[in-house]
Structure formats: structure tokens, C-alpha cells
Design a protein around this nucleic acid. Structure first.
Length: 547
RNA sequence: GCGCCCGUAGCUCAAUUGGAUAGAGCGUUGGAUUCCGGUUCCAAAGGUUGGGGGUUCGAUUCCCUCCGGGCGUACCA
């Protein structure tokens, strides 16, 4: 929050106190249109029912309540049905512009009132194959959410939860074993429901390279499974690293069995009278908690369903003492979490700490036709393939530019052809352009080492003022994104900022014979560069010096 | 059938969480550069926000109902 905003809010609160009104929030918004000023309040319309007066009359009272001379507000107008529009003094803008130049890479960070710890779980794909484009969306989304939270002041743990036991993994091991036997020269029948991908052959090949045919009589799939798991995991980690981040921890579901936490959940739920056994299975009585049906947590085979370890895992997260716990799931897992949360709540944990983010699918199209993606059938395009085609920055940008609860339509052919005119380059270009102006400034012997000490109030052209106003939104954007956990808003902001900058650049020549003006404009574009670099940095997208 | 998400310009998507004349990109059409990077800028055309009701000063946003699409609705994860 900047000074003018704080001042206006304070005055409005004082007005409410004077009239002994409570329960009406004082909210300032930034008007959509430039002509409506810098801040706007709808409070007069909100108060109409309390004061039993016309909104415009109340607005007049409020305007009169503001002292004539104050350090921040230049002009106040009443507009439309009763909006109060505030026009701030320019001195305040220059002050805030200077703040950017002083704080540099710290600008916009640390908006959280007090430091908090957060854990965020995402990707969590079992190691049965390379990451797909679908995983890519979640990986980039999760990392960006984590990074935005870090910028706001959270200490974030990025966690990957996986299960290396169970049916899926046995099938994987068996798939490798069969390919291995094939390489050994045996005739095999490869079942349709096994993993068809070429990477299975690669793993089998490397086993053959190190062991020859020594494993051909081993019926146990374990060595094949283990080899596949470690090879695939290594691959996944490489892909993640290429995307520009890494996980702080990999949490193995198996540990929950080993330390008895799985059994403990059943016992504790039993104590609450929420567990029953019939038809050979153990049931979680969700119908007692308002759900329409009970859920099996231990199958008649004695094997738990996914719900049970999920519950134990979440209890574990709770006990680690985080302030916030974020789960990111694809839309296909939408039914998994209500039971888990219900169990947590029943066991007395504070469920409000948990935020579940569901993102919709990536529908991949090729020449207008939908491509169904399945790891098992191997008709998928891997995340690495995508990065090979369009690069890391475009990949990240593409996954981040849309709201997560909107389906992402990914036309592969289009992504390739557009990769050289992608919107991400539009933002990066602004950054590179500024750098190149700085280079010229240095050649002209202009001293730009201390832009924060520059005289700034000669920046008076509309395009300059608009740019300043856009720049100083940045801290608020970060805190809003951290609150709503929506990275696409930061993306949209940066794109808009780039637009405002390019417009400024077209109208205002930075380096001219007027030395004082040149230095002021150099300071302005330095601030622009800082904000773009900070924003892209948070999204883990490069801000290049030249392109 | 039930639950969640979505439906906005030709296409892909936004919309300050209920605000003023619903905005961008791509595509289409027409313009701008003796000068700091034209991967740029300006302009035009393009809309009954899927349909219908309701809530109120005010609805793309909230509620109801229908239509259409996606994902679930397992003793798979």
C-alpha cells in the first residue's frame, strides 16, 4: 500500500467513525479508466442504506470531510452513481518511483505482514514414465505459486509425494522385464496394458549392457522395477531442473507404512466411530460426515486404497507445523480430497490451513485434432519434447498465462510456429531494449550509477506518468497473487507493463541533448527494468540483456 | 442421475473478486521509422458475456433453471 492510499483509507475510516458506522469495509480500487483518477471508492453507495440518503449526497459529505490542504490528494471528484474518485499529487508518484530505484531487486517482495511457513505439494507423479505436458502445467504452476509465496514472505517447501509400490509399479517392472527378455533374444508377448513407451526399452537395454543376460531367469520383478524407478526418477529430476527449479523434498508414501502412521489413522478414526468392517473391507464412514456414501480405505485384499496413505500424509504435514498447506491436483483427482479433509477435520486438525488448488487439463491438439494422452499407451508428447521445440521460457509462459481453472488448449503446431513471436518475447524485449539504451547512455558518458538520486519531477509527459503509475502497482500485484494463488495475474500485469513501456518508448526519446531530462528518463527506464526483472524472476523466466 | 470446472470478439483467453463505456494477443484491413533494437507503435472492423428468470443503486461475476463441453462419480492413483 502506498502513502496516498493509506491516507485516503484513514480519512474514510475517520468518516465512518464519526457517523458511528461499523461493518462497512473501506476498500479503494484502481479505476479501469485513466479519467477516473488514481483511486476510487464506492463507499458512498454502500452507505446509502445505513444513512438513508442518496449516494451522491453522501459522497459530497465525504468530499467535504477531506481537508483542503493535504500532502497526497490533489483533487476529488464525484462521478456516476456515487463513485468518489481521487487524483493523487505527482510528488507522491516520484517518491514511489524513487523507492523502486532504492529497493532494486527487493522491490515488491516481503508484503506479508509476518513471516509464515508453507508447504506446497505438486507434480507427485509416480515414476512410471517421463513427465508429460499435463504434468508440465502442474509443475510450472506449482513452482510459480511457491515462488510468488516466497516473494510475499513465506518460507516455502516444495514437495513431491510419490509411491513406488503398488500395482502400477509392478506393471512397470514387468514391462521392463519383458523388454529385457526380448533383448536377450526370447520371444515374448507384450500385453497391451503394459507400458508401451520406447523409454522402457532404453531401461532394459542399459540393464542388458551392465548385466548381460544374467537376469533372464529371475521371475521377481523387483530388480527391473528398481532399475526403472531410479532411471525414471533421474529423468524426472532432470526435466524439473530444466524447467528452472527443484524440489526441497521427495516424500515416499512407503515411509508412512514403515513408521506405523497408516495403522494409526485407522485406529484414530475407529476411536471416533468412523470406521467399520464389512464385505471383507474396511470402510471410512463418510456418510456420518454428510457425504452420500462410505469409502473403502482397506480393500479385502488387505491393501489400503489411496485414500488412507493420503490421510496419513496430510496428518504428517499438519504435524510438521506449517502455517499453510497447499495441494495442487489435476481435475482428475477432484474427488480425492474431500474425504481426506473430512478425515483431518474429524481427527481435530485445523483444515483451514489446507488450500487445494485444482487445475484443469491441458488438451493437446495437433492440426486441430485432439490428441489423447496416456503414459501407458505412450501416445504422449513429453515435457522435454515441448521444451526442445519452443524453449523453456515459452513453455513456462504458456502454462502460466491462463487461469488454472480454465482448460488450456495447447496447439502444438501453433506453439511451434508462434515460438518466435510469443508474448513472452514481448516482455523480454522490453527488458533487452532498456539494457541497450543503458549501453548507449554509457557510451555518451551519462552517469547512471545512482538513478535513485536523480531529479525526477521533470517527468511530466502522459506516457511517463502512466508508466510510473503502472510500475508502482507491482507490490500490490504480488500480494494479491500471493493471496489468490493465481500466477496468471502476474503474467498479465507484466504484459501490460511492457505495453505501457513500449508506448512510452515510442513517444519519448530517452537520450537527448537535454541532459537533465535524459537522466530522469534513464532513471525511469531503470525502474521499469527492475520491475520486469523482478516479475519475470519470480516466474522463473529469463530477463535477457539482449535477444 | 449426482459432484466439480468451463461457456465472453473469427480463434486462444482476461476482466481489479459486485462497479463506470466488457479488454488483450493472434488473425483481418489500413497507417507510422533520416534518430536510443520495427520481436515496436497507432488506427479500424469485430459482442444480446450460451438461453431464460431472480437478488440491488449496479451482475461476465452471486442464486435458480435449462442447453452445450471437460473431468470425476472404484475394493485404480
Amino acid at each position: 500500500m502506498n502513502n496516498s492510499e493509506a491516507y485516503i483509507k484513514q480519512q474514510l475510516s475517520a468518516f465512518l467513525d464519526k457517523h458511528q458506522i461499523s461493518g462497512v469495509p473501506v476498500i479503494l480500487q484502481r479505476p479501469r479508466e485513466e479519467q477516473f483518477g488514481d483511486h476510487t471508492s464506492n463507499i458512498a453507495m454502500q452507505l446509502a442504506r445505513f444513512l438513508k440518503k442518496k449516494p451522491r449526497d453522501i459522497a459530497t459529505d465525504i468530499v467535504n470531510f477531506f481537508p483542503d490542504d493535504n500532502p497526497y490528494v490533489d483533487k476529488i471528484e464525484i462521478a456516476g452513481p456515487g463513485f468518489i474518485n481521487f487524483y493523487v499529487k505527482r510528488e507522491g508518484l516520484y517518491e514511489q518511483l524513487r523507492e523502486i530505484l532504492q529497493k532494486k531487486e527487493k522491490y515488491g517482495r516481503g508484503t506479508l505482514p509476518r513471516p509464515q511457513r508453507a508447504q506446497i505439494e505438486f507434480v507427485s507423479a509416480n515414476p512410471t514414465g517421463p513427465l508429460t505436458i499435463g504434468h508440465g502445467r502442474q509443475a510450472v504452476l506449482g513452482d510459480a505459486v511457491a515462488s510468488i509465496m516466497e516473494a510475499a514472505g513465506y518460507e516455502v517447501t516444495r514437495e513431491y509425494y510419490f509411491n513406488n509400490a503398488g500395482r502400477q509399479m509392478r506393471v512397470l517392472g514387468e514391462s521392463v522385464r519383458l523388454r529385457y527378455l526380448e533383448i536377450c533374444g526370447q520371444d515374448i508377448v507384450f500385453p497391451e496394458d503394459h507400458y508401451q513407451g520406447e523409454y522402457i526399452r532404453d531401461i532394459a537395454r542399459s540393464l542388458y549392457d551392465t548385466h548381460g543376460d544374467a537376469l533372464k531367469d529371475i521371475r521377481d520383478v523387483t530388480p527391473f522395477k528398481d532399475a526403472a524407478e531410479s532411471a525414471i526418477f533421474e529423468d524426472i529430476k532432470k526435466t524439473i531442473a530444466r524447467l528452472g527449479f527443484s524440489f526441497d523434498s521427495f516424500f515416499n508414501e512407503k515411509s508412512l507404512y514403515d513408521n506405523g502412521k497408516i495403522d494409526e489413522i485407522v485406529t484414530r478414526l475407529k476411536e471416533k466411530g468412523l470406521v467399520d468392517t464389512h464385505d471383507g473391507a474396511t470402510w471410512f464412514l463418510t456418510s456420518k460426515l454428510g457425504f452420500d456414501q462410505d469409502r473403502v480405505i482397506i480393500k479385502s485384499t488387505g491393501e489400503p486404497t489411496y485414500r488412507l496413505p493420503d490421510m496419513a500424509y496430510h496428518v504428517n504435514k499438519m504435524e510438521r507445523g506449517y502455517d499453510r498447506i497447499i495441494d495442487i491436483f489435476g481435475a482428475d483427482h477432484i474427488d480425492t480430497y474431500p474425504d481426506v479433509l473430512a478425515a483431518l477435520k474429524a481427527l481435530g486438525y485445523d483444515v483451514d490451513k489446507v488450500t487445494v488448488l485444482i487445475h484443469q487439463f491441458v488438451t493437446l491438439t495437433e492440426r486441430g485434432e485432439k490428441v489423447k494422452m496416456s503414459t501407458r499407451k505412450a501416445n504422449f508428447v513429453t515435457l522435454d519434447d515441448l521444451m526442445d521445440e519452443v524453449g523453456v521460457d515459452v513453455t513456462r509462459y504458456f502454462f502460466l498465462m491462463r487461469s488454472m481453472n480454465s482448460h488450456l488448449n495447447f496447439d502444438l503446431a501453433l506453439a511451434k510456429t508462434q515460438s518466435d513471436e510469443n508474448p513472452v518475447f514481448y516482455i523480454q524485449y522490453a527488458h533487452a531494449r532498456i539494457n541497450s539504451i543503458h549501453t548507449l547512455a554509457a557510451e555518451r558518458k551519462l552517469d547512471i550509477s545512482h538513478p535513485e538520486k536523480q531529479k525526477l519531477d521533470i517527468l511530466q509527459v502522459d506516457e511517463e506518468i502512466v508508466l510510473i503509475k503502472e510500475l508502482i502497482q507491482f507490490p500490490k500485484i504480488i500480494s494479491q497473487c500471493a493471496e489468490t494463488l493465481e500466477p496468471h495475474k502476474l503474467v498479465n500485469y507484466l504484459h501490460n507493463l511492457a505495453t505501457v513501456f513500449h508506448r512510452f518508448y515510442t513517444v519519448c526519446r530517452v537520450i537527448t541533448d537535454d541532459k537533465e531530462l535524459s537522466l530522469a528518463r534513464l532513471a525511469l527506464i531503470e525502474a521499469t527494468k527492475i520491475v520486469i526483472a523482478n516479475g519475470l524472476g519470480i516466474l522463473h523466466i529469463q530477463a535477457p540483456e539482449r535477444m
